[in-house]
Amino acid sequence: MSEMKHYITMKGTNKGIVVYLDDQCSFEILLQELEDKVKTSESSGKTEITVHSQYRYLTDDQRKDIAQLIDQYSDMSIKKIDSYVLTREESYELYDNTTVKSVIKTIRSGQVHEVKGDALVIGDVNPGGTVLATGNIFVMGKLRGIAHAGFNGDESCVVAASYMHPSQIRIANKISRAPDYDVEGSPREFAYVNSETEQIELDQLQHLQKIRPNLLDVFERGL
């Protein structure tokens, strides 16, 4: 006799209990087994769970059905409902934040060039000019103005330039300002947040892959 197939899997993780829903069976079968599971599950006090529908898209009504069932038959409460599915809006947002936006121009004093994702400036960033990006910033020219990479809070971002002589570099909430005295710039450098010192540091571009190996993904996206 073949074993009965189960469509609900409950796992304890370091983030709490995750209830995985099979994404191949009908929703009605899923609800029936979920009801049986939560009725027989033992929990002491109110327990928060994450419901993960894997590759199944759940409508608002289906989400309500799951929430009502769990609330009615158990002491559990749903912390969130997760999935691998992206809505059209989420996919557009993901694409927007993970693509390289290139421009051929000089960013002059008073100008602000702002992009979602990675910024590639083919030209100079003059003193008083600013480049803002949610991702990395690459300047194929002289960076003498302000560059703020990862301005949504991503400290893994970098600022790279053919000639590095900025008035200010920001990565997430870290700030590095130019010294009050005159210094010469340096060719082919990048700035990054050192995780040990939690400060912005400079290094030669040939060391970029070693310090930020995941930047290869950026190049494969078309930089």
Rank of each mutant, 00 (worst) to 15 (best):
A119P: 02
V159I: 15
K174L: 12
V131I: 13
G128Q: 11
E114I: 02
K142N: 11
R188E: 13
G145A: 09
G135A: 03
A172S: 15
G110F: 05
R108G: 03
F138N: 04
G129Y: 05
V131L: 04
V159M: 10
D124E: 10
V183H: 08
P166L: 03
G129C: 04
H148S: 10
R108T: 15
A133D: 01
H148A: 12
R177S: 11
Q168L: 12
M140H: 12
G123E: 06
I122C: 12
S167T: 15
T134D: 13
A191K: 02
P127F: 05
A172T: 04
G141T: 10
D124F: 08
E114N: 10
N152L: 12
G150P: 09
D180K: 14
S156K: 14
Q111R: 09
D182C: 03
S156P: 00
D154V: 11
R108Q: 14
I169Y: 04
I104V: 14
G185K: 02
Y181Q: 11
V158W: 01
V121F: 03
G185Y: 05
D180E: 15
V139Y: 03
P187R: 08
T130K: 11
A160V: 04
N136P: 03
R188V: 00
V139P: 12
R144E: 15
A133Y: 00
A133I: 02
G153K: 05
I137H: 03
T106A: 12
I122Y: 04
A119G: 01
A119Q: 06
Y163K: 05
K105D: 13
V183D: 02
G141R: 08
K174S: 10
K174Q: 15
N136V: 01
M140A: 07
I169V: 15
Q168H: 04
H165G: 02
P127L: 05
M164C: 09
L132Q: 07
K116R: 15
N126D: 14
G135L: 04
I104Q: 14
C157M: 15
